[in-house]
């Protein structure tokens, strides 16, 4: 039974996955913080990623949906905005990355980027002194990744 204790382990585990698996785990990460947004489009977009038989066209459409959600939720330049209201934006950005083709850059893996966006979504909600919730998100991500790896093993993928 694989366990993931810290972020270094998490990142290493994510790096070893192929893009399809990364997307799957990433989608699970986003689902974990989905309660922070009311945008119902995102749930649908994520369900496409999680489905094993999703076609390229479906993935593309899901990605577009997530991006539209992110743009709808962004803080407008010069507009009165509130950091604690930014969670839905970061959830949507996470979903956008989770449905995208590849992580940009070389040192970041797609799923890690999504993990960071999800943590940012929690970070907005955490009060000035309370780091608890972001820590909860981190440990949830480690658990989700470990469970995913274990379920793949059980199904004879490795």
């Amino acid at each position: 039974m694989r366990t993931i204790e810290n972020d270094d382990d998490l990142r290493a585990a994510l790096t070893q996955m192929d893009v399809t698996d990364q997307r799957h785990v990433a989608a699970l990460f986003v689902e974990d913080v989905l309660e922070y947004t009311h945008d119902s489009r995102l749930r649908h977009a994520l369900s496409v990623v999680i489905r094993a038989d999703a076609s390229e066209a479906e993935l593309k459409a899901a990605h577009r949906t997530a991006r539209a959600a992110a743009l709808d939720a962004h803080a407008r330049c010069g507009a009165d905005s509130d950091w604690s209201d930014q969670s839905p934006y970061f959830v949507a950005r996470a979903a956008e990355a989770a449905t995208g083709k590849n992580a940009k850059g070389t040192s970041s893996t797609l799923a890690w980027l999504v993990a960071m966006q999800c943590r940012m979504a929690t970070c907005c909600l955490a009060s000035e002194t309370d780091q608890e919730s972001e820590e909860n998100t981190c440990s949830a991500q480690r658990r989700i990744a470990a469970e995913f790896i274990n379920s793949r093993k059980d199904n004879g993928h490795e």
Binding site: D7, A75, C77, G78, A79, D80, S81, D82, W83, M116, R119, M120, C123, C124, A126, E128, Q131, E134, E135, C138
Partner: peptide
């Protein structure tokens, strides 16, 4: 800040940065 961003928002991000 033209968008009403307060120091606490920046501090939250810095905490996130350190943590992650």
């Amino acid at each position: 800040s033209p968008m009403g961003v307060r120091l606490s928002a920046l501090e939250a991000q810095i905490r996130h940065l350190k943590h992650d």
